[in-house]
Nucleic acid binder design. Sequence first.
DNA 1: GGCAGTTCTGCAACCGGTTGCACTATCGTG
DNA 2: CACGATAGTGCAACCGGTTGCAGAACTGCC
Lengths: 334, 334
Amino acid sequence: MSPRLQRAPGVTIGDIAAAARVSRSTVSRAFTRPQLLSPETVDHVRAVATRLGYVGNQAARALSTGRFGNIAVVVPDIANPFFPPLVRSLQSAAETADLAVFLGDSDESAEREAKLIARLAPQVEGFVLASSRLSEELIRELAATRPVVLVNRDLDGIPRVLIDSSGGMTEAVMLLKKLGHQRIAYLAGPRDSWSDQQRREVLTSAASGLAVEVIEVGRPSYAAGRDSVSAIVRSGATAAIAFDDVVSQGVLAGLELRGISVPSDFSLIGCDDTLAALTTPALTSVSAGAATAGTAAAKLLIQLLEDPTAECVTIATHLVIRATTAAVTDGAMR
Amino acid sequence: MSPRLQRAPGVTIGDIAAAARVSRSTVSRAFTRPQLLSPETVDHVRAVATRLGYVGNQAARALSTGRFGNIAVVVPDIANPFFPPLVRSLQSAAETADLAVFLGDSDESAEREAKLIARLAPQVEGFVLASSRLSEELIRELAATRPVVLVNRDLDGIPRVLIDSSGGMTEAVMLLKKLGHQRIAYLAGPRDSWSDQQRREVLTSAASGLAVEVIEVGRPSYAAGRDSVSAIVRSGATAAIAFDDVVSQGVLAGLELRGISVPSDFSLIGCDDTLAALTTPALTSVSAGAATAGTAAAKLLIQLLEDPTAECVTIATHLVIRATTAAVTDGAMR
DNA sequence: GGCAGTTCTGCAACCGGTTGCACTATCGTG
DNA sequence: CACGATAGTGCAACCGGTTGCAGAACTGCC
């Protein structure tokens, strides 16, 4: 069979107890509730522990306390540039609360997401589900079991962090109006994305007086953006707002292929501000503060671990104007 | 104090034992060593377990077996586009071996990396350290304790996955030669990066007959790339190879600012192929196969858990030619 | 019919912590 | 000086699994 497991020969509280000539309980308390012991005892035990290189066994601790000191963050695709900053700041915030972070990548599949969650559930205190693809039912079921924080998913009664695009979207529309555009396109993202739904609504209501053409691009990707250009041209729009920056970048490439130059012939605005400064020309985009959302989600979850009260954090957005927007030219698109 | 912990009311083997009218040992064996039980018992117990929604408690299992079913991957910066694909494929491979993945982001700091590792060590079976900033000594110390796989760090005797840039770098130099460039620049990355050291060496040895100017850009970032353009111009080079794609993108922006057009006035080659297709013009780059490296690292670690034999996996690279390279023009740079 | 050999199952100890409770000094007070 | 309060420590049970060992039931064979 498998080679007989030789346990890691870790130092246990038993060893310390023996070396310090106290009981195991005392060793345990020296770390968890020092106020119950005399200061000398605490010092002594801790000194011995340090000398022996003691590191508490998390599994054993978890077993008796029911606390694991771990949380999990699940994302649909860590390779999508929206998520790394989010995960990064989340892990950083978790670290300050001495929580370790499991990462799950569901590969955009609800099924895999459910599996990951089931696998992780027995060893985490709570979950952060970012842009979850799970059904509302499953999420509520999970949330009944343990603390769950959603990011960009709006389920009443479940703590969530929502990046509210309305501010930035409204500014975006206003800017285009001011620049004289009269017919604009919205390159819409996945139907089941809360962010897309919100952006759609805000855009159409803010765009009174403008003609708005909604073009579905499906899964937001570079290729999808590039391929949507023909539809954009057909729509007669002189400007577009895209579901995210990845799509925008595809659109930029597609426009270039057709010899349509940005921003003189066509204006483009992205969302999320993940790549914005990196495109050529630099993309005007609605900042989404993924990093802020990560921190907020971590804090919310940490707070939730102490006091299970539902809450909703909203993060405001604003427009970052760069080089892909300009006044509409006379001939508009040729 | 803290609200008295109400343990998660999870189903335990005790509950199943009672419901199935067998002992706890039998329940345990139904999952871990079914060959010891009669097939009917196994079926029966499993059926009951499923009906009750049993999920094994990982902490308890870990306590008695010493196996956690978790691994950790530590990266310097998950927001750097090289790492997400790596982490993604690593987690996917780990999943098939039923291992859960902890993610640590050291924020480019050796100290934080050490802290993360200490925090995670008591609950993981092994580590994948990607582009570790840790001292050789600390890494060896850790590796003595438990399985460690390094990515892009070359420590003799420690299992590691190395992305070998020599193939792609050589092709890159050959291409530039063929295009008639005679003076090229290398935009060098962090001194303590193994990848950078390797690229430097390969480049200088492959570039016999060419003048090579090494320009240090320090921490590889968009801004660093953009700001290095003046040094490039000063060097008189007509082409450059950059440490990574992020730097390249910065260089593209910097060149544009100066009105130097790519590739007609200047040729540029990146490394890692992380953003390559997304730039304008699309970047010629040395593919690094971060995703492949992630899978390889996971497999190596999994193998290492069974059979602790040091191994080294090397991943070959090649050049992907896109639109930022062209024959040198007469006037070269103005 | 008796006995050795298998196959299956249960008992009980153990992994390494935590914690309710009991016990013993020690102290302050009347 | 007696007595209750309080502080400090230890005992032992418990968390939820795993596993060595022993015993029961069944088989086959002499």
